[in-house]
Design a protein around this nucleic acid. Structure first.
Ligand SMILES: [Mn+2]
Ligand SMILES: [Mn+2]
Ligand SMILES: [Zn+2]
Ligand SMILES: [Zn+2]
Lengths: 147, 147
DNA sequence: CTTGTTAATGCACTTCTGTTGCACTAACAT
DNA sequence: ATGTTAGTGCAACAGAAGTGCATTAACAAG
């Protein structure tokens, strides 16, 4: 028998979503998930820190690590030197093999976004090489920044 | 009139090569260039530091920066978190536009190599996006490490 | 060869990002 | 109510990258 307290409407769908991935839906985790959900662009840890200025850096760090380990967030290396994070799509399985969508980094607004519909094409490798994973980042100007 | 001292045979071709790119061929620079030339795999700054243990970190750092600025070395972001560096091919123009070869990172030997013959394929982007540069890193097992 | 200018080097110090240890606290099941 | 497990906050640390400044080397002109 479960005694449930009244849930905030915005969060009502996030809580079971976290539980489904065996992540305890703590207040902080729900807020971080919400933050990632509301932003189209992938976020760096420092971005999350700045947004939740009152929270501890380590908690946010470990929150993201947990999300990543549980497979609901994927890390993006866009070449800027700092890792970015974005929510995985429904049914994506980054943990096992990379979902091979590409990422776009805009040199104007400095934002990185997932192009989930654009998969990395098959690459022919020299003899003896076997591929397990691939990372493709296109740099240029995004739709919002091109006039 | 130039009074030239006797050159070590291995270095005889590097000195003019550096001068051609407006890089003063100091002893350190020649040695770093030689080091990169002798290694197939791209090297991180820490690798160069370890190889030239007696030298100062800053000098090596600025040596690589100079090489990069002058367009004889290109930086590789292989996703390991530390930047790698490799010599550019003859006639490559990384400075202007990336030469679109891909890079391979082996998860066994942890080395990163340029696959200069393997160009990054043309990618279709959504409307409004324009590409200026691309970085593709394939992770897997290299020829030396596969059985 | 001497001198003056410019570039390279070495050392110390700083910043930024990521990571860990540990004590404390909240959550949950029994 | 209680014990176990997991999350949090603080401090400290590690690694890589970058900067300021004084010293030294390279080079060209006289
Ligand atoms: Mn993505
Ligand atoms: Mn390369
Ligand atoms: Zn943009
Ligand atoms: Zn290998």
């Amino acid at each position: 028998m479960k005694t449930k307290t009244i849930e905030k409407p915005q969060l009502s769908n996030i809580e079971p979503l976290l539980q489904k991935s065996n992540i305890r839906p703590t207040a902080m985790r729900i807020l971080v998930y919400k933050f990632l959900l509301e932003n189209e662009a992938a976020k760096a840890l420092i971005d999350i820190e700045n947004h939740f200025a009152k929270s501890d850096r380590t908690t946010l760090y470990r929150t993201i690590k947990t999300f990543e380990d549980k497979g609901i967030v994927h890390q993006i290396d866009d070449g800027t030197g700092t890792a970015k994070y974005a929510l995985c799509e429904e049914g994506c399985n980054c943990e096992i093999e990379t979902d091979l969508h590409l990422h776009f980094h805009c040199k104007i607004c400095d934002e990185t976004i997932c192009l989930t519909d654009h998969k990395i094409p098959q690459i022919n490798l020299p003899n003896g090489f076997s591929a397990e994973n691939a990372n493709l980042v296109i740099k240029g100007i995004c739709d919002k920044c091109s006039c």
